[in-house]
């Protein structure tokens, strides 16, 4: 089991008003699964993603990621570095760094030596089909290429879970198709992927859909 949550809840207090963004979510993601998280805006998708991605901790409930209990007492930065690979809607590459350096970044924070980083990053970029673009800056790349770099970066430390947040949201349909194919290929190779989307066509390509509504899982 890569992900297991029990009674996971997130409550915000805005000007003294209690906002329950996520209510008693129980879910599991098995190793090698490709799940889609869907729901209208305000349904708690982002909150769930932030919790799963260890960018935030739950108010109530428990979250186990790859055998580690995630709460305030552990170093979230290290967990993110080792166990999560993020793919964002808006790519979020560092504009000053070339493709290679962007992919190296998570490995740098993991303390991998420069030589090993470069070798691994080159391999990963070749694997996502842009081995010929190693030294291009993000603004010299097309949207689809940027997202490929981002996927390569997400794979850098071989994390047990890849979190993709609307990975095709900023792409034209052809590039979007290509990115989906890459993700499905990765899944076929055994990677565990959780993807947030509001596109039903994309959701159908996942093994399973988790639907959220008003902070609760509805199906």
């Amino acid at each position: 089991m890569v992900v297991k949550t029990s009674q996971l809840s997130k409550i915000y207090h805005l000007d003294g008003v209690e906002v329950r963004a996520l209510v008693e979510v129980n879910m599991e993601i098995k190793e090698g699964e490709f799940i889609a998280i869907m729901g209208p805006s305000g349904s708690g998708k982002s909150t769930l993603l932030n919790l799963l991605g260890c960018l935030d901790t739950a108010s109530i409930g428990e979250y186990w990621l790859d055998g580690v209990k995630v709460d305030k007492t552990i170093n979230l930065a290290n967990i993110r570095n080792q166990k999560i690979g993020f793919v964002f809607q808006s790519f979020n590459l560092l504009s000053r760094c070339d493709a290679l350096h962007n992919v190296e970044l998570p490995m740098m924070y993991a303390g991998v030596t420069s030589k090993n980083r470069q070798r691994k990053a080159t391999e990963l970029l070749e694997q996502v089909g842009i081995g010929n673009r190693l030294h291009h800056l993000p603004n010299q790349l097309s949207g689809g290429e940027k997202q490929r770099v981002a996927i390569a970066r997400a794979l850098a430390n071989d994390p047990p879970l890849i979190l993709a947040d609307e990975p095709t949201g900023n792409l034209d349909s052809i590039s979007g198709q290509n990115i989906m194919e890459i993700l499905q290929n990765l899944n076929n190779q055994g990677r565990t992927i959780a993807m947030v989307t509001h596109d039903p066509n994309l959701g159908e390509r996942a093994d399973r859909i988790i639907k959220l509504m008003d902070g609760r899982i509805v199906s």
Binding site: N78, N92, L93, L105, Y109
Partner: peptide
């Protein structure tokens, strides 16, 4: 700020 967010998401600690 955005760069800091990206770096933190990728595993940069506060100390980094």
């Amino acid at each position: 700020t955005k760069e800091i967010g990206i770096r933190k998401a990728l595993g940069a600690t506060d100390a980094n």
